[in-house]
């Protein structure tokens, strides 16, 4: 990599992107107050909200026009995911959008793709390759009967009669144990290297969109802590005047601003120059995960004992920081993947 290469470094949004960002932010602010988030616990799925999210067209918008989409880009998707994260919305959008795009990229028939693009059913992606039929934790599998998985050298869509049983978890997400059922209906989408490449790209997209969601989530948590620090007083001054409070919050702001830009840059390059920096989406994920953990911990702590209570909204962000980060391949494995790419030992 030429570290002095002449490239644009334009982080600005165009009018369409700004309009999308604003409309999605307004949608979630109105349709998904924190009461809605709590009401959807412990499953973490609000079907009414999901219907309304689908009505926005977000499941299909990033498909090619020829496949019934609007040719929206990965950049548009990360803008949406950031707003979803800000609202900690209990909808399986990240996994469903990634699975739908994977179906289209694998050349699935219209018959297979249409229910995903319309959102008739929820589709999920099994993040790890299936080994010897062993079960794995699959995000959204408690609300999705259709799971895309890589088994051996085949990428296939597995459709069961219904979703798998929910397992209770820290982030209140629709997590479930899942394994391919030999008796299930199965549509093979790709085989060999193509199957592995498609799956790897989908997992990278999952990490990137999750990173975007974590940026929004962390900024929302930061915002709560900042408002608290402006009004809460100790020894006659607002606690936000104290460096012991202001500096940790400034550090969260530093991390959030960098994580957002890293997500945007990774999204743009993945969309427009696929393969040029394959490590960047994974780097954005690593940084956003650590930003979320550190940022939500700091934000809860700056609200003292109050921030530690279950009824404080700080708890919603804290519990989902890890609750969302670990769903599709843990940060440890992600870090190994980055290392393999930069050392060329893949």
């Amino acid at each position: 990599m030429d570290r002095f290469e002449l490239r644009r470094q334009d982080f600005s949004l165009d009018e369409d992107q700004k309009a999308l960002q604003t409309s999605v932010a307004e949608f979630f602010a109105k349709q998904c107050p924190t009461g809605t988030v709590r009401a959807a616990e412990p499953l973490g799925f609000d079907e009414d909200l999901w219907r309304r999210v689908l009505d926005l067209g977000v499941a299909s918008m990033s498909l090619p026009e020829a496949r019934g989409g609007d040719d929206a880009t990965l950049v548009d998707l990360v803008l949406i995911a950031e707003e979803l994260g800000r609202a900690v919305a209990p909808v399986p959008l990240v996994g469903h959008a990634v699975a739908t795009r994977l179906l289209a990229r694998a050349g699935a028939s219209d018959e297979v793709l249409a229910p995903a693009a319309r959102g008739d059913r929820v589709f999920a992606l099994a993040p790890a390759a299936v080994r010897n039929g062993r079960r794995q934790l699959v995000p959204d599998a408690a609300v999705a009967a259709d799971v895309l998985a890589l088994s051996g050298d085949k990428l296939a869509l597995h459709s069961a009669a219904g979703p798998a049983p929910h397992v209770a978890n820290q982030g209140s997400t629709p997590l479930a144990w899942w394994a391919p059922d030999p008796g299930q209906e199965r549509v093979v989408l790709a085989v060999g290297d193509e199957a592995r490449d498609l799956h790897r790209a989908a997992v990278a997209e999952w990490r990137l969109l999750t990173a975007a969601a974590l940026v929004g989530l962390t900024e929302a948590a930061l915002h709560l802590a900042v408002e608290f620090a402006k009004t809460r007083r100790t020894m006659g001054v607002p606690i936000g005047t104290l460096q012991g409070v202001a500096f940790p919050l400034a550090d969260v702001a530093i991390a959030v601003s960098g994580a957002r830009n890293l997500v945007w840059k990774a999204a743009w390059l993945t969309e427009h120059e696929p393969g040029s920096r394959p490590e960047l989406p994974l780097m954005a994920f690593d940084y956003a995960v650590r930003t979320a953990t550190h940022g939500t911990t700091t934000s809860a702590h700056m609200q003292g004992g109050l921030g530690f209570t279950a009824e404080a909204d700080a708890s919603l962000y804290f519990l989902r920081a890890k609750g969302w980060s670990l769903l599709a391949v843990g940060p440890g494995e992600n870090l190994q993947d980055i290392g393999d790419l930069i050392t060329g030992t893949d």
Binding site: F11, A250, D251, A253, I254, A255, S257, G258, A259, N261, L262, K265, E279, L280, M283, D286, Y287, G332, L335, Q336, I338, G339, D340, I342, T343, T345
Partner: peptide
């Protein structure tokens, strides 16, 4: 070793894109 090199590389990329006065600290 690979994981630790990766972490340094991530921090470097984060530093490159962190904007304004935030970027100075980062």
């Amino acid at each position: 070793v690979v994981a630790r090199l990766a972490r340094v590389a991530v921090e470097l990329e984060a530093g490159v894109v962190t904007p304004g006065p935030m970027g100075r600290v980062k």
